[in-house]
Amino acid sequence: MSGEIKGYVNDLTKAFNTGVSYMMPVVVVGGIFLALSLAGGDATAGKGMVVTNPFLQNIGSIGTAGFAMMIPILAGYIAYSIAGKPGIAPGMITGFIANTPIGDNHVQTGFLGAMLMGVMCGFLGRWVKKWDVGNTLKVIMPILILPIFTTFVVAMVYIYVLVEPIGWIMRGLIDMLSGLQGGSALILGLIVGAMAAFDMGGPVNKTATAFTLALMAEGIYEPNGAYRIAVAIPPLGVGLSTFISRKKWEQADRQMGLIGITEGAIPFAVKSLKTVLPSIIIGSAVGAGLGMIHGVQCMVPHGGLIVLPAVSHAAAWYAIDMAIGVLVTALCLHVLRPTVSQKDK
């Protein structure tokens, strides 16, 4: 039984990673176009940025379309990972339903509902694929019977059973996160930042990614802003350390970049995990915590200075907080690492 449970866990992990991977380009496109549109808007009291230029409004429509599609695509490719191609249509359709107000109370479950719809469509579709049917039905199973049956069953279960409890959870989560200020915002930023650096692109990092994308889908951009600060800090912090603490690094290690790819710190961590890992975790946590305090908002799921034009709020703090996190990482490395000559001896 433990092996079977482990298999399901592996399937779910793979499915969520697949869904997020296919969703990411859509979010990037949507975020970039929406950020370009808002950049040409006018700040108004109570309404935020208002775009009046017709061309920029059309650019904004492209961005809005990207954000509207990200939820169905997430659900569709979660189902695809589990059930194969026949799972895509049921997943996308039920994901769209999850992101649409349903019932008298107009409940919308968004990211959380879409993930659940994708999982349900995937496992139900995989079960239907195992049905022993005649040769005549086998031809139409993947394009007719399986998608229709799976979509109907999962949609009905969602509409009549799951929509209210999932909606209640989502409303509570959104209300809590929307009201975060001061110390509470700092704590969330510290946690998100530490998760970003903990395994440098592994499951913990991807969990934080999914969390911030879920909030983006609900119109909460601060955690994503904090997270995008954090993911750029490990490679930049290690890179800065190779310059200011030259005696503690070999010549081959003195490289750095400006694109926020956390995995860039992996080669350094492999060589000295006990000095690099705590340094990048502390630096990323500090940078993300400051980002939450300053209300940094980023419209795209990528980090580093390259996405600075897509930072819709507190762009200056985005760069400053990242620089502080990088400096903290470099200082930690300076304290923790021995000089190369001492290590060799």
Score class of each variant (00 low, 15 high):
Gly7His: 08
Tyr8Glu: 11
Leu12Tyr: 09
Thr13Val: 03
Thr13Gly: 05
Thr13Asp: 00
Thr18Ala: 08
Gly19Trp: 05
Met23Gln: 10
Pro25Gln: 01
Val29Ile: 14
Ile32Trp: 11
Phe33Ile: 03
Gly40Trp: 07
Gly40Leu: 09
Thr44Glu: 01
Lys47Gly: 12
Pro54Ala: 10
Asn58Met: 15
Gly60Thr: 11
Ser61Cys: 06
Ser61Asn: 10
Thr64Pro: 02
Thr64Trp: 02
Gly66Lys: 03
Met69Glu: 05
Met70Thr: 07
Ile71Gln: 01
Leu74Asn: 02
Gly76Asn: 01
Ile78Tyr: 08
Ala79Trp: 01
Tyr80Ala: 06
Ile82Met: 05
Ala83Cys: 03
Pro90Gly: 02
Thr100Ile: 14
Ile102Asp: 02
Ile102Pro: 00
Asp104Leu: 08
Asn105Lys: 15
His106Met: 12
Thr109Pro: 10
Gly113Thr: 02
Met120Asp: 13
Gly125Lys: 02
Gly125Phe: 02
Trp127Cys: 12
Val128Leu: 00
Lys130His: 00
Asp132Glu: 04
Asp132Phe: 04
Val139Arg: 10
Ile140Leu: 13
Ile140Tyr: 08
Met141Lys: 15
Pro142Gly: 00
Ile143Trp: 09
Ile145Val: 13
Phe149Cys: 06
Met156Arg: 08
Val161Cys: 12
Val161Glu: 09
Ile166Glu: 00
Gly167His: 08
Gly172Val: 13
Ile174Met: 14
Met176Thr: 15
Leu180Ser: 03
Ala185Gly: 07
Ala185Trp: 00
Leu186Arg: 10
Ile191His: 00
Ile191Asp: 01
Ile191Thr: 00
Met195Tyr: 02
Ala197Ile: 03
Gly201Trp: 11
Ala210Leu: 13
Thr212Asp: 14
Leu213Gln: 00
Leu215Gly: 10
Glu218Leu: 09
Tyr221Asp: 10
Pro223Arg: 07
Gly225Gln: 11
Tyr227Lys: 15
Ile229Tyr: 14
Ile233Pro: 06
Val238Cys: 07
Phe243Trp: 15
Arg246Trp: 06
Lys248Val: 07
Lys248Phe: 06
Lys248Glu: 06
Trp249Arg: 01
Trp249Asn: 01
Asp253Pro: 06
Leu258Gly: 13
Ile259Thr: 09
Ile259Trp: 04
Glu263Gln: 05
Ala265Thr: 15
Pro267Trp: 07
Phe268Glu: 02
Val270Arg: 08
Ser272Ile: 09
Leu273Cys: 11
Val276Lys: 03
Ile281Trp: 08
Ala285Phe: 10
Ala288Trp: 02
Leu290Cys: 05
Met292Phe: 08
His294Cys: 13
Gln297Ala: 11
Cys298Leu: 07
Gly303Cys: 14
Gly304Lys: 07
Val307Glu: 14
Leu308Cys: 12
Leu308Ser: 12
Ala315Arg: 09
Trp317Ser: 04
Tyr318Gly: 11
Ala319Asn: 03
Ala323Cys: 09
Ala323Leu: 13
Ala330Cys: 13
Ala330Val: 15
Ala330Gly: 10
Ala330Lys: 11
Val335Thr: 05
Pro338Cys: 01
Thr339Asn: 08
Lys343Cys: 07
Lys343Phe: 12
